[in-house]
Write a protein that binds this DNA or RNA. Structure first.
Lengths: 134, 134
DNA sequence: GTCCATTTGTCCGTATGTATC
DNA sequence: GGATACATACGGACAAATGGA
């Protein structure tokens, strides 16, 4: 399972394990992960290390934490389509903390930034918006 | 500066301070942040808390860490323009581990995913690619 | 070349707070 | 009220890599 003497850090090994379970569907959308204490006991590691692993999955946008209910596999959002107007450009980046709160963004969710010809920009949550061409 | 009795967590307050210095240009691209130990002593907090703050900035893509040289303000990449063809759609998400290595992506850098009408997708690093319309 | 100081990475244990059930 | 679960913060310890004396 987890090898403390391995090259890869313990918290990364645990993140790999959980990520595999999510990607394979063994842990489906909306399903809870075991609690931090449970994981710590199960793998014989500290809760601190478990939290490092879960933090990794949060930054990857794979799980959401509802405190103090638990940690759950992220459920995909409904996607709205936005047309990219002529002369506009679009990029993506991670939101700042303020933007995250303003748009009620989950962790590990980027934003799409659309720049108009006049330089003004609009920001869209990347988990709910996709860009199209008319 | 930092108020331990404030509503906002100490590590978020420190992240806010550093982010402001980066956004304002007081800390320019390529410049080093003070070492973790230095920041801990300067603000009278533990190194653990400092690391939480820096982890926050890493997930936002604002800084890169070169161990053990230090932590530096990220230097913007040259941006290449990609045209969004008719019928294509584009979104953004955080990369998988494999994509991170394949594109040599830094932390906190999303990917742009372009989906063709036939369902095939191409992935671009969001720090080096922007989308346009012809 | 070696030795040493610096810096980040990892891991542990503990404690307290806060929100939910 | 009590139990559970995540959030925050502290402390300590050792490893690994870099760079300079």
């Amino acid at each position: 399972m987890i090898d403390p003497s391995a090259d890869r850090a313990v918290f990364r090994q645990l993140a790999d394990l959980l990520r595999d379970q999510i990607m394979s569907g063994e842990l489906g959308p909306g399903e809870p992960l075991p609690s931090e204490l449970r994981l710590a006991q199960e793998y014989g590691i500290s809760r601190t290390t478990v939290r490092q692993a879960i933090a990794q999955l949060r930054t990857e946008g794979l799980v959401t934490v509802e405190r103090p209910r638990g940690t759950f596999v992220r459920i995909p959002e409904e996607v709205k389509l936005i047309t990219l107007a002529r002369g506009e450009r679009a990029g993506a980046r991670m939101p700042t903390d303020a933007e995250r709160r303003a748009h009620r963004l989950g962790e590990g969710v980027p934003v799409l930034v659309v720049t108009a010809p006049d330089g003004s920009t609009t920001v869209h949550p990347a988990d709910r918006v996709q860009l199209t061409r008319p």
